[in-house]
C-alpha cells in the first residue's frame, strides 16, 4: 500500500515537464525515505535523478519498497489534468498493475481520480558515487536557460570553462562563434540572483547543447541552478526542489579524438 499526498501538486507537474522529453519510460522507486527516480535517455548520454523526500509530503505512506514503471508521456498527460493549485495524491496497491493520481482542488469542491496502467521496465541503474568537483558554479536558472538557448542558435556544442576570471560558455557554428563570460557576482539584492563560482582547479569541458537545453525545462522548479564540473566526470546540472529534494541531470562530455 502506497499513499503519497503532495499539497503543492504543481511541483510534480513541473517535474514531469522537466524530464518527459529526455526519458520515455522510467521506474519510480518508493521507499520509506522518499519517492525517487533514476533514468537514462535512450542513447545513454544523459541521466536524470529525481528525489522527493518523504518529509516533503503532507502524508507519506509506503509500506514496502516499490518500483512502479511509468510511461512519462502518459503520466504527464494525466498530471496536466490537475490544476496548478491542486493537491495531488499518488496511490498504489501491492501487486497492482495500475497507479492512481487523485487531484483535489484547494477548496475540496472538485475531486478527480485518474488511474494509469503501469508497465514493466527493464531499466539500467547506475551507481553514481559522491565526487569532488574541480569547479561548482551556482547561478540564476533563468540566466543559464537563456545562455543555452542563445548558444544553440549558433552552434551544437558548448564549451564550459571555469577559470579564476569566471565561467565562460562558448560555441562555434557555420555562421560564427559566441562567447559568454559570467563573473562571480554576489553583490545582488536577492541571493538567488547571485553567480557564485567555487573553483579548486580550472576546468574546461565540451557538451552537446541539445541535452543542456532539455535540462533547462526544469527552470521553473528552482530560481538557481548548480553546475558541477570535473575533467574526469560527466557534468551535473542540479535544480533544487524547495525543501523536498532535487532534479539532477548528468551529461557525459564530448572529447576530441
Amino acid at each position: 500500500m502506497l499513499e503519497l499526498r503532495l499539497v503543492q501538486g504543481s511541483l510534480l507537474k513541473k517535474v514531469l515537464e522537466a524530464i518527459k522529453d529526455l526519458v520515455n519510460d522510467a521506474n519510480f522507486d518508493c521507499s520509506s525515505s522518499g519517492f525517487s527516480l533514476q533514468a537514462m535517455d535512450s542513447s545513454h548520454v544523459a541521466l536524470v535523478a529525481l528525489l522527493l523526500r518523504a518529509e516533503g509530503f503532507e502524508h507519506y505512506r509506503c509500506d514496502r519498497n516499490t518500483s512502479m514503471g511509468m510511461n512519462l508521456g502518459n503520466m504527464s498527460k494525466m498530471l496536466k489534468c490537475a490544476g496548478n493549485d491542486d493537491i495531488i495524491t499518488i496511490k498504489g496497491d501491492d501487486g497492482s498493475d495500475t497507479v492512481t493520481f487523485m487531484f483535489e482542488s484547494p477548496t475540496q469542491d472538485k475531486i478527480a481520480d485518474f488511474e494509469m496502467k503501469l508497465m514493466d521496465i527493464d531499466s539500467e541503474h547506475l551507481g553514481i558515487p559522491e565526487a569532488e568537483y574541480q569547479a561548482i558554479v551556482t547561478m540564476p536558472s533563468s540566466e543559464f536557460a537563456r545562455i543555452c538557448k542563445d548558444l544553440a542558435s549558433i552552434g551544437d556544442t558548448v564549451v564550459i570553462s571555469v577559470t579564476k576570471e569566471g565561467v565562460k560558455f562558448s560555441t562555434r557554428g557555420d555562421i560564427g562563434t559566441a562567447n559568454i563570460v559570467l563573473r562571480q557576482n554576489t553583490t545582488v539584492d536577492k541571493p538567488e540572483d547571485a553567480t557564485v563560482i567555487e573553483m579548486n582547479e580550472p576546468v574546461s569541458l565540451t557538451f552537446a547543447l541539445r541535452y543542456m537545453n532539455s535540462f533547462t525545462k526544469a527552470t521553473s522548479l528552482s530560481n538557481t541552478v548548480k553546475i558541477s564540473l570535473s575533467s574526469e566526470l560527466p557534468v551535473v546540472v542540479e535544480y533544487k526542489i524547495a525543501e523536498m529534494g532535487y532534479v539532477r541531470f548528468y551529461l557525459a562530455p564530448k572529447i576530441e579524438e
Binding site: 548520454v45 541503474h125 551507481g127 557525459a252
Partner: peptide
C-alpha cells in the same frame, strides 16, 4: 573530431 562519450563509460551498473 569530437566524440560523444556515454555515461556507462564513467559509471558502473548498480
Amino acid at each position: 573530431k569530437r566524440v560523444q562519450l556515454k555515461l556507462t563509460e564513467f559509471y558502473q551498473s548498480a
